[in-house]
């Protein structure tokens, strides 16, 4: 019963999107689309949706691949106590979330531009900074609950550092790592402001197309298709990651 209620809670707001995605026409006061069709899909393709999704995927993946190991290091360091500045580091890590995005992005961009950092590198740097708090805190709670005993044991049994990492540590941490990577992926996958302002408009991503179309009236159908597109790859990624995680779980 509880589960069903939660499914309703999460699914209900998606109903307008799901209906609009296949509505060629939906005029007031009809409760359901008046003409069904795939105009929205056509418009999404015409707007460059597929190529933009590819770019967003690449960006999300890059951010995840960088921010997850950093988060793991920071989390482990904080939990184990060897992280530098153990009092300041958590505050520093909360700060990117606490600074209103427009202020953070524009201020940082002045720095990056002044230092002649290439726009694409700057884009990755800022998105990684935005993702690291999520990966760190996700993993910090996981490491706090993590039992280092298994690794100790493996080492005592003569496993090398690499073996301990790959055979013991990663499998144990897989579910948390997968979720941290997922959150980091989403930071890159769904960003508009940083991609535009720091990336300098050279890299047109899915959120840029979606958000700009959403700013106008009469685009609900194409916006719905693009939004649903935006939901699928992360979901597939999460399922894949969860699967690898659960297989290796001891």
């Amino acid at each position: 019963m509880l589960a069903v209620l939660l499914i309703v809670w999460f699914a209900l707001p998606l109903v307008p999107l799901a209906l609009w995605a296949f509505a060629d026409r939906w005029s007031f006061p009809s409760a359901i689309p008046t003409v069904w069709g795939v105009d929205g899909l056509d418009a999404a393709i015409a707007a460059g949706g597929p190529a933009a999704s590819g770019r967003s995927f690449l960006l999300g993946l890059t951010v995840a691949l960088i921010a997850t190991p950093i988060g793991a290091l920071a989390a482990r360091g904080l939990v184990a106590g060897w992280a530098p500045l153990p009092k300041i580091l958590p505050v520093l890590l909360f700060a990117p979330v606490a600074i209103p995005p427009f202020a953070a992005v524009l201020g940082t961009n002045v720095l990056l531009l002044r230092a002649h950092v290439p726009p694409m590198l700057g884009l990755v740097v800022v998105l990684v900074a935005a993702a690291v708090p999520y990966t760190t805190f996700m993993l910090r709670t996981a490491y706090a609950a993590h039992d280092v005993g298994f690794e100790e044991e493996a080492r005592t049994l003569g496993a090398s550092a690499g073996q301990v990492l790959w055979r013991v540590h990663l499998p144990l941490m897989a579910p948390a790592l997968a979720r941290a990577a997922f959150l980091a992926f989403l930071v890159g996958w769904s960003d508009y402001l940083v991609t535009l302002i720091v990336g300098g408009g050279q890299f047109v991503t899915l959120p840029m197309i979606t958000a700009s179309l959403a700013a106008g009236i009469g685009n609900d159908s194409v916006v719905a298709v693009l939004s649903l597109t935006a939901v699928l790859p992360p979901l597939i990624l999460l399922v894949l990651l969860a699967r690898t995680g659960s297989h290796r779980r001891p």
Binding site: A74, G77, L92, A95, T108, L112, V125, A129, A130
Partner: peptide, 20 residues
Amino acid sequence: LLIVGMIPVVVVVVGGLGST
């Protein structure tokens, strides 16, 4: 490694908060 990894965060915090 951790310090190197924190560079993006420092850039954003210094750049964002500092300039604000």
